[in-house]
């Protein structure tokens, strides 16, 4: 029995199986849940979250955590919108407004990630405190930039990136494959796992621990900014508070997928399944017409369950 449980828990497809089980259990009670239209809804909600969760996966593999991703999403969104707005933007009416706006947003994300990376890798400050402070600081900066105002009138070439599900899917597929290949096939990818398993041993073995840690935070910032491109495109509006409430979803989905909070473990496909599971729960609870309080309680229970499964997995691996 223990052997079976061990195999199930350690399987790559455990969360996918759980998702299918969940669909089967909930579908009979949930009107409209199993329909092409609803699965398209789930897909469009899942894709931006997956991108930001992939960045979190990279950081968690190194044994760190990045709480600043929500601030990156808000700051990138508002800076990008300030640049691209048709009327008052720095790139107003320019034919390159959309690509240049995306580049600016990615640059903002990478810069915040680089600051986090320097503080964690070089100044050796705790990741939790660094990224918490960074979240507060950059959220405040985002709000200050426009005095909490939102900005719309963005180029259609930009808004279609997040507003068109098939285009978003194509972008996320490319991002996901790149991260997967990087993690599984590159030397730096293997070093990330090594640092997460044991940074001291990695250092002695010649792994550039500082550089790898720095890189992980830059990647996380970059991917959060990419998610911001998609989220901003969905609402066609740059907002300094965009993504403010999704931190628990990001970390929850990543951990539900199986990426360990203790470092050294994580895969793109795990995170995909984690995000899928969380969005299935979210979507079904909405369709069931539950109150916000019941939804919050149920989601909290699911994330708690995931955290418990994570510790169980670690015990099985250690045994």
């Amino acid at each position: 029995m223990t052997q079976l449980l061990r195999r199930v828990l350690l399987s790559d497809y455990f969360v996918l199986g759980l998702s299918l089980l969940y669909v089967a259990a909930v579908a009979p009670f949930t009107p409209g849940f199993v329909s092409a239209e609803n699965f398209t809804n789930i897909l469009s909600a899942l894709l931006p979250l997956l991108v930001v969760a992939l960045g979190q996966t990279i950081v968690l593999i190194t044994g760190g955590i990045d709480l600043s991703v929500t601030a990156v999403i808000g700051l990138s969104s508002i800076v990008g919108a300030m640049a691209m707005n048709h009327e008052t933007g720095w790139l107003a009416q320019s034919p390159i407004a959309a690509p240049a706006g995306v580049m600016i947003m990615l640059l903002v994300g990478a810069s915040v990630g680089a600051l986090n990376g320097i503080a964690v890798a070089i100044a050796r400050m705790p990741a939790f405190m660094v990224t918490l402070a960074s979240m507060m600081g950059f959220s405040g900066l985002a709000v200050w930039l426009t005095h909490a105002k939102t900005i719309n009138a963005l180029p259609s070439g930009f808004t279609m990136l997040g507003g068109h599900t098939m285009i978003t899917l194509a972008i996320v597929l490319v991002v996901g494959i790149c991260v997967h290949v990087f993690l599984r096939r590159s030397l730096w990818g293997r070093w990330l796992y090594a640092v997460g398993h044991n940074s001291r041993a990695s250092h002695i073995s010649g792994v550039p621990v500082g550089g790898i840690t720095f890189f992980a935070y830059v990647a996380s910032g970059l991917l959060a900014a990419m998610a911001s491109v998609l989220y901003t495109g969905q609402t066609e509006t740059g907002s300094p508070v965009l993504g403010q409430n999704i931190l628990l979803d990001v970390i929850g989905a990543t951990v539900i997928g199986g990426t360990s909070l203790f470092g050294g473990k994580g895969k793109v496909v795990w995170t995909l399944f984690g995000v899928l599971f969380l969005k299935l729960v979210d979507n079904s609870l909405n369709l069931l017409n539950l109150s916000i309080f019941a939804i919050t309680i149920a989601k909290g229970a699911v994330i708690l369950l995931a955290a418990y499964l994570d510790s169980l997995r670690n015990r099985f691996v250690a045994a």
Partner: peptide
Amino acid sequence: LIALTMFATGCGKSG
């Protein structure tokens, strides 16, 4: 935990 989750998801008004 699973039972609680299933209860929470299954007890909503629908239709």
